[in-house]
Amino acid sequence: MRLDWLQPFSLTLASAATGYIAWIGHVLTLPAAIAFPALWSLARSRRTAGLVSAVYFLAASRGLPQGVAAFYRSDIWPGLILWIVASSGLVIIHAVLWSRGSGGWKALRYTIAMILMAVPPFGIVGWAHPVTAAGVVFPGWGWAGLAAVTAGLAILTTRYRPAAAVTLAGFWLWSAAFWTGPQIGWQWQGVDLQLGDSLGRDTSLSRHSDLVATLRSERRPDTAYMLLPESALGFWTQSVERFWQRQLAGGDLSVIAGAAVVDQDGYDNVLVRVSASDSEILYRERMPVPGSMWQPWLPLLGRSGGAAAHFFANPIVSVGNQRLAPLICYEQLIVWPVLQSLFYDPDLIVAVGNGWWTKETTIVEVQRVSTQAWARLFGKPLVMSFNI
């Protein structure tokens, strides 16, 4: 009896394990994703290549159905549908670009797939990108490390894959043996909250007073800038601005926090800076969460609402004499926002999120480790603040 099914089955099983292990939420397991291009290239048919890709991306994003169900307070089915639909674009890319050819031709086609996964429009859902592992394999190498991992991923699709696999695994083990996390920005302090879905929805003065009290109680003596999570200040209005300036009066503390700025077309998901003397909108999110926040189909239906996407705007913002690379929530899971910001050589990376809806999933942990990996790759200090 011929066992033609054995090789596709083995590749599919290995790809699912790769997606699960790489994106389990531990920074040192990220390089497991490097195995994916090798598995993809070993497929003997386009159908198998598509299946290998599908199980990798579905395993990597396995927390999405449960997270969507929690966000919308619904059953699991809307989340399952979004999970499959969102992954389908990435599967199509890898199925279409797969080839029976070998050598440089296959490496070139996989390189094209990597680029398409990293930039819009496909990069909008380009999560679980294997190049994210560059910061663990080559910490501190910067653009050279990114180039080395990109080249290694491409070589893994050729007959030279054993040499590439051994080389990358060696650097991975060396890095793991001496791993240290990113430094924390000098004079910066991130504050994590556990306020669940009330953060950003409870806009009462008592909630704002509680946040101020939390900052005062947790502030270290050397802290000049404190970071609060996405949506921490709710709707950013003149009343909220005046309240915070009064609360900070007489001190030298600056607070950077998430908020929403509403206009007639919808809203911007932003980071604001407020101190005793002034305030400003620092950053407008480049890529809100597709579906739940960014809803580009609404204008086509004659409706307004949803978060605006400022795709390539404001990659760098300034606070005092420091240049920041800001990342809000979903931007930590995809490639182009962080690379665009790092192109401008910021002084530190600032990452915030509001992950109350991700309980019992690894989504927030994956956000954290992805951002840590990019920070280590470029040797940048990192400050993070999340609500769960």
Rank of each mutant, 00 (worst) to 15 (best):
T371V: 04
S275N: 14
A35L: 03
T150Q: 03
S304K: 05
C329M: 11
G185Y: 00
N387E: 12
A113G: 14
W83C: 06
G234F: 11
W127K: 04
G103K: 10
A169V: 05
E331V: 12
L282R: 06
Y20K: 14
E365N: 11
N314V: 10
S87Q: 14
S370K: 03
Y56Q: 03
Q340P: 01
P381F: 01
P221D: 05
P229W: 07
A309T: 02
L80W: 00
G142I: 09
P296E: 01
A59H: 02
W236L: 05
V131I: 13
V119I: 15
P182L: 08
Q7M: 07
Q187H: 11
V317Y: 11
S304E: 01
T362E: 13
V212Y: 13
Y20A: 07
F122A: 05
A351R: 13
L39C: 08
L300T: 15
G291M: 10
W186L: 10
L108Y: 07
T371E: 09
F312Q: 15
A17V: 09
V137C: 03
T358C: 14
I155D: 00
Y225M: 12
R286D: 02
L301F: 00
V369W: 03
M114A: 14
S254D: 10
V350C: 09
D210I: 03
V166M: 06
P130V: 00
G101K: 13
L116G: 06
E280G: 10
G305N: 00
I328T: 02
N354M: 04
R73H: 13
A154L: 02
A165P: 00
W357I: 07
Y344H: 13
V335K: 07
A148N: 13
L205P: 14
I281M: 09
F122L: 07
G266I: 00
H310Y: 10
Y56W: 04
V52Y: 02
E230F: 09
G25H: 05
S102E: 09
I115P: 11
L228W: 00
S209R: 12
S74T: 13
G251E: 09
F311E: 14
R246P: 03
A148L: 09
L348S: 15
L97M: 13
D345C: 06
R159L: 15
F378E: 14
G196L: 05
R273P: 03
L301C: 04
R323W: 07
V383E: 12
H94E: 15
